[in-house]
């Protein structure tokens, strides 16, 4: 097997496993840029995955056919947004410890989604969904030599949606007044309030938007990778998205790059057995790699990563 064939095997697999992580990490970027730490990404993603599997199943039952996964995405976006509200209320209005509240959200998602799965389907997992997002060649682009094979042949549309959304989030955060508000609220809420920005409202919007992104990430995971939902469907992808967000230095495109890189590491741990040289490396090392790199990134060996200044601190008017 030559090098180009190896790339043709790894790159598409990396992009597929990266898409849900990209979306969830974008949710993290939105939330943390406004100053609210979101450890609950894992839970939000899990709930999105559950809603995704549920609504794809009902979409099929209702005769929506190939449109069912897309309907499930809309449902998961709404569900993720709603599910982020308890975290927003606790950490913004009730001034709870944001990390604790995020941990509680993860517990809640794990409990509620499996509870509902058992209640609705009387089994530990949802039925396998029939209507998944199908791979397809992108017209024209797939004809480009090499790049066409790597990026645009038998690719999921959802991967392009994820990349496009990363660009959109970057544009919103860095190029629009709304984005400037989010960033200022996360860096120095007092100053922002003085300039007439509603800190509380901006943070609520950011956290809820973040939940919507994470919910979509979970639903796309179900539609492209797992095909159903059970307690073990989302096990760590949300935390990996958190890592991607930090590795990408709280920047939407950086987070996307990091997510793609982590996707590569994940796909290597799966496809690695078919590739010479990599066969020799124990699977555990490839599985551990993203996390080790994140720690190194934070330590400053891979360029320093600094959180938004006010992240993790509840905002109290008039407090210096």
């Amino acid at each position: 097997m030559d090098f180009l064939q190896i790339l043709a095997l790894i790159i598409p697999a990396a992009i597929v496993s990266a898409a849900p992580i990209i979306l969830t990490s974008l949710g993290g970027v939105l939330s943390e840029r406004s100053g609210v730490v979101n450890i609950g990404l894992e839970g939000l993603m899990m709930f999105g995955a559950f809603i995704g599997a549920l609504f794809t199943y009902y979409g099929q039952e209702w005769g929506l056919g190939a449109a069912s996964p897309w309907m499930s995405f809309v449902a998961a976006i709404v569900a993720g947004a709603i599910f982020a509200i308890p975290h927003a209320i606790a950490s913004i209005s009730l001034k709870a410890d944001q990390v604790v509240s995020g941990v509680a959200l993860n517990f809640l998602a794990a409990g509620l989604s499996v509870f509902l799965t058992k209640k609705i389907f009387d089994a530990g997992q949802t039925p396998d969904i029939q209507e998944r997002i199908n791979k397809g060649d992108i017209p024209f682009l797939s004809k480009i030599p090499l790049l066409g094979d790597w990026l645009f042949s038998s690719a999921y549309v959802t991967s392009f949606v994820a990349v496009a959304l990363a660009v959109i989030v970057w544009f919103v955060i860095y190029k629009t007044p709304f984005g400037l508000r989010i960033r200022s609220v996360g860096e120095h809420p007092m100053a922002a309030e003085t300039m007439g920005i509603n800190v509380i409202k901006t943070r609520y919007i950011s956290v809820i938007l973040g939940g919507a992104f994470a919910g979509l990430g979970g639903a796309i995971y179900v539609a492209t990778i797992s095909g159903n939902f059970s307690a073990s469907t989302i096990s760590g992808q949300g935390f990996m998205a958190l890592a991607a967000m930090i590795f990408g230095k709280w920047h939407p495109l950086g987070a996307m790059g990091a997510a793609l890189f982590f996707g590569l590491a994940q796909s290597l741990s799966i496809t690695g057995e078919q590739i010479p040289y990599l066969k020799e490396i124990p699977n555990a090392i490839l599985l551990v790699l993203p996390y080790v790199l994140t720690i190194l990134a934070l330590t400053g060996f891979v360029g320093r990563a600094d959180a938004p200044k006010a992240s993790g601190k509840p905002y109290e008017k008039g407090k210096r």
Binding site: L94, S101, A104, L105, L108, G111, F115, K119
Partner: peptide
Amino acid sequence: PTELVGIIIALIIFFVACS
């Protein structure tokens, strides 16, 4: 389903955090 207990524990943490 046993997961109900997980939900209750999550709620308890939420309420303690929101002291």
